[in-house]
């Protein structure tokens, strides 16, 4: 199932503008910790839109904003959490790497590779429930070399659990080139786990959607786990503040040519969509995020007296 390119373009614009709003929070000091954006990888999250249900679990990584948006997490509480506000999704206790929306079974972890075991638990819950819900674990190309990736896919294959692993392959695990330290790609590992695997161009939202929808449909039908590997570029450093000296200016220039928003816009123009209309879309998306950002900025940080809340249900011990 795919959406039309114009719709994907709108989704990608929303994610890009959301990420840029986060960048502004780092520049202003409102976000005082690490921030990892997926600028350059928007087509992957956009391709996921509309495929998952609220009762499907999605467990994402440190680079998670686009996935939250794709899962339908409301933008304002998510941005407020990233901006450390009491109006945030988690009241300012989690921050950008630790987003939780239990109403949509969306959660994240800042530990590379740790998404798969959690998603496997959701998948086992679906099995126990007798439901056709699926569980999606997002991983980067670095996370696929953790032990948890192997353990979880082995178990999912053995029990035919509905685990879909979405690998966002930007080929850089911080400064280590993943293809240089991986025996094979992620999709090629699928047969070892009795899983279905495929690799797609992660700058093409429709291609991602086709592959992801197929993986989800198989898992829903009880056909077991799947690995969807989507290749894309990470334009920014690993985190904001990363000097990113491990990538040459020439390489960065070549990467910029694979900007999914530029590619989509070019295609839309080729389809005869007017520049003015596209500019209006950009302005509309920007205005929407700007309005949210203004409200987020006006919100308060959580009261310091609450720092000991939530350790235990009955208080601190």
């Amino acid at each position: 199932m795919t959406l039309d390119l114009m719709t994907y373009y709108r989704h990608m614009l929303r994610i890009r503008h959301f990420e840029e709003a986060c960048l502004s929070g780092v520049a202003s000091g409102e976000i005082h910790g690490e921030l990892h954006t997926a600028i350059g990888q928007e087509a992957i999250a956009a391709g996921m839109v509309g495929i998952l249900r609220d009762d499907d679990a999605l467990v994402s990584t440190h680079r998670n904003h686009g996935h939250g948006i794709a899962k339908g997490v409301p933008l304002e509480p998510m941005l407020a959490e990233i901006f450390e506000k009491e109006t945030g999704l988690c009241g300012g206790f989690g921050g950008h790497m630790h987003l939780f929306d239990p109403d949509r079974l969306f959660s994240t972890t800042g530990i590379v590779g740790a998404t798969l075991p959690v998603a496997l638990g959701h998948a086992y819950a679906a099995f126990l429930d007798g439901s056709d819900a699926v569980a999606v674990a997002v991983s980067g190309d670095g996370g696929v070399n953790t032990g948890g990736f192997h353990e979880s896919l082995n178990l999912a294959g053995a029990l035919k659990l509905p685990l879909v692993v979405l690998v966002e392959n930007n080929d850089w695990a911080i400064s280590v080139v993943s293809s240089e330290v991986s025996a094979v790609g992620s999709a090629e590992r699928a047969p070892a786990y009795a899983a279905w695997g495929t690799r797609v161009d992660g700058t093409d939202p429709a291609a991602v959607a086709v592959a992801f929808a197929e993986a989800v449909a198989r898992a829903r039908r009880g056909e077991g786990p799947a690995i969807v590997e989507a290749t894309a570029q990470r334009f920014r450093g690993h985190y904001e503040g990363d000097p990113d000296l491990y990538r040459t200016p020439e390489l960065k220039e070549a990467m910029a040519a694979k900007d999914p928003l530029v590619i989509a816009r070019r295609e839309l123009e080729a389809q005869g969509i007017g520049t003015d209309h596209l500019d209006d879309l950009v302005a509309e998306s920007q205005a929407q995020i700007d309005a949210i950002l203004a409200r987020v900025r006006a919100a308060e940080q959580p009261d310091p007296s609450r720092a000991h809340d939530h350790v235990f249900t009955g208080g601190v011990a």
Binding site: P117, V118, L120, G121, A125, E151
Partner: peptide
């Protein structure tokens, strides 16, 4: 690692 993490998802 896998089955302890399953506890989280469950």
């Amino acid at each position: 690692m896998a089955f302890t993490g399953m506890g989280v998802g469950l």
